[in-house]
């Protein structure tokens, strides 16, 4: 038997916000739902959002879930977390936030929290009219055919949750949990991500060390180099969401980027992305950097 936290059991036995949301057909209020999973996979979540259009805010969130104890609890937790916040803030919610809210999940059940995060994204993207990556059509990037998991989805959980083993990836997105023939590929992917990460880290460290040794601030060329390496790291996650980012220019401490695809098509998501990229750049390169989106 799984070792569930009190909170998981509580939200399973007494779930909050279950059901669908009726469209009130009211001006300024939109109702939308996002869905992930299927009966074949053993779990599915349909997340309903009621959105205040003007404020871009989630007025109400409800869920319908087919799945196990932790799937139901994760769904309910998600609705509690996102009620009342803006869509941009909601997009910043990760599967870890859901797991933390629940006081943790057994590792084998982390995919329930990932399902929550993915349904949230699906609902918001649908509302914003953004095409979500079609895993089925995109054979080249499909790593696990048993569970239809693409390279980008794996990249994302690996980076966001610092995963290091195939078993962990299986626990988070199920990839590898069927015939397990994709195990080697997942392993390679984890190694590649690890390497990219180390490479960026060592390059950034080297550049900063040189600058410090010469007792001068980073030159613009150095900044460009560093920013580029960090952006390369962020890109896969954006790609997973159907977007992309490109460095346009660096002026002093201002980094100008072009947001593309899904990211560029709506103004509100640019804010989120700008923030996400800025946080990363500040952490990795210079705490004074400011990111600006140009079109």
């Amino acid at each position: 038997m799984w070792d569930y936290s009190e909170k998981v059991l509580d939200l399973f036995y007494n779930p909050k916000n279950q059901g669908a949301i009726e469209d009130p057909n009211q001006d300024g209020v939109a109702v939308v739902f996002g869905e992930v999973g299927s009966i074949a996979c053993g779990d599915a979540l349909r997340l309903h959002l009621k959105i205040e259009v003007e404020a871009d805010k989630i007025l109400d969130a409800r869920f319908q879930t087919f799945g196990c104890t932790s799937a139901i609890a994760s769904s309910s937790a998600l609705t509690e977390i996102i009620k009342g916040i803006t869509l941009d803030a909601a997009l910043n919610i990760s599967n870890r936030d859901i797991a933390n809210y629940l006081g943790g999940l057994p590792e084998e059940k982390m995919h329930c929290s990932v399902m929550g995060q993915e349904a949230l994204e699906a609902a918001i993207f649908k509302y914003r009219g953004i095409e979500v990556e079609q895993h089925e059509d995109d054979d080249g990037a499909l790593i696990c055919s048993c569970f239809g998991v693409s390279e980008n989805r794996i990249r994302r959980v690996v980076i966001e949750n610092n995963l290091t083993t195939v078993e962990q990836v299986t626990s988070y997105v199920k990839a590898g949990g069927g015939c397990s023939s994709c195990g080697a590929e997942i392993e390679d992917l984890i190694a590649a991500i690890q390497q990219e990460k180390e490479l960026t880290a060592s390059r950034v460290a080297a550049e900063i060390a040189t600058a410090q040794a010469q007792n001068r601030p980073l030159t613009t060329v150095q900044k460009i180099n560093l920013v580029q390496t960090v952006l390369q790291e962020v890109r896969p996650m954006l790609l997973a969401d159907g977007g992309d980012v490109e460095l346009y220019d660096v002026e002093g401490d201002t980094v100008k980027v072009v947001l593309k695809g899904a990211c560029g098509s709506c103004s509100s998501s640019t804010a989120t992305l700008k923030n996400a990229i800025e946080v990363r750049l500040r952490e990795r390169v210079l705490p004074t950097l400011i990111v600006e989106a140009v079109s």
Partner: peptide, 25 residues
């Protein structure tokens, strides 16, 4: 239309022990 593990945990509340062929169990 419902999942086995969720049924088992619900039964568990009443002290009823059974098992399921669902993936989650």
């Amino acid at each position: 239309y419902i999942e086995g593990e969720a049924i088992l945990l619900s039964l568990d509340q009443y002290g009823i022990c059974a098992s399921s062929g669902s993936a989650c169990t």
